[in-house]
């Protein structure tokens, strides 16, 4: 590994990384911004592989890169945890479940789209995923408020309002917030 600060990881780590990422991708209905909080819940809160701050940093980077946000996030977080092997493990654990699920579904498309049982199952899982995002969001907002820093809090509220109430383009918001950070948040108290 070229980067010195990457920790040594044993086979147990890769198995845990693959399994947890695979299962999250396999059971999470709703795409990128649902999967990311769940990855955070696993990697940061359960396993302690990453810190809160660097996870948010990497998610911000993932958000501003081309491609699927969840895949970008998995690659970046995997790389941060264990270099290229970690990135590859996380990448395949993210894309294999859709590959398997959709291969099966496309064989039984009519059954799938009409089955009330399948609908109930998916709707239930969607509610579960919603609860998990809310949980992660509450934790993150709480931590941000506890820091008692006015400017980052203003960015949080402003970005939320612009995106949620006024439908401002996500990319534009990310660029604006990056510039605001560059101009205003370089001091050590904001790290």
């Amino acid at each position: 590994m070229p980067d010195k600060d990457l920790p040594e990881r044993g086979s147990h780590f890769y198995r845990a990384l693959f399994c947890s990422t695979f299962l999250i991708s396999a059971f999470t209905v709703g795409g990128g911004f649902v999967i990311i909080p769940l990855l955070k819940a696993k990697y940061v809160d359960e396993y302690g592989w990453l810190e809160d701050e660097e996870t948010l940093n990497l998610v911000a980077v993932a958000q501003s890169m081309p491609g699927v946000v969840a895949v970008n996030a998995a690659i970046l977080l995997g790389y941060r945890m264990a270099g290229i092997p970690g990135a590859l493990t996380a990448l395949f654990a993210t894309i294999l479940p859709p590959l398997i699920t959709l291969s099966v579904i496309s064989q039984a498309y009519d059954f799938f789209i009409q089955s009330p049982l399948v609908r109930l199952l998916l709707k239930g899982m969607q509610c579960g995923a919603t609860a998990l995002i809310v949980n992660v969001a509450v934790d993150l907002v709480y931590k941000q408020c506890k820091k008692k820093l006015a400017l980052p809090l203003a960015i949080l509220v402003g970005t939320f309002a612009a995106n949620f109430f006024f439908g401002v383009n996500l990319m534009l918001l990310v660029v604006i917030d990056g510039i605001l950070g560059l101009l205003l948040l370089c001091g050590p108290e904001y790290d």
């Binding site: 911000a60 995002i133 907002v141 980052p152 960015i155 402003g158």
Partner: peptide
């Protein structure tokens, strides 16, 4: 670091927005 300090609250905001839509 400054840029990232600006982006972290933005990510929290976007997760909140996704949560409310959901």
């Amino acid at each position: 670091r400054g840029v990232l300090n600006g982006l972290r609250p933005a990510v929290v905001a976007l997760i909140c927005a996704a949560g409310i839509s959901f």
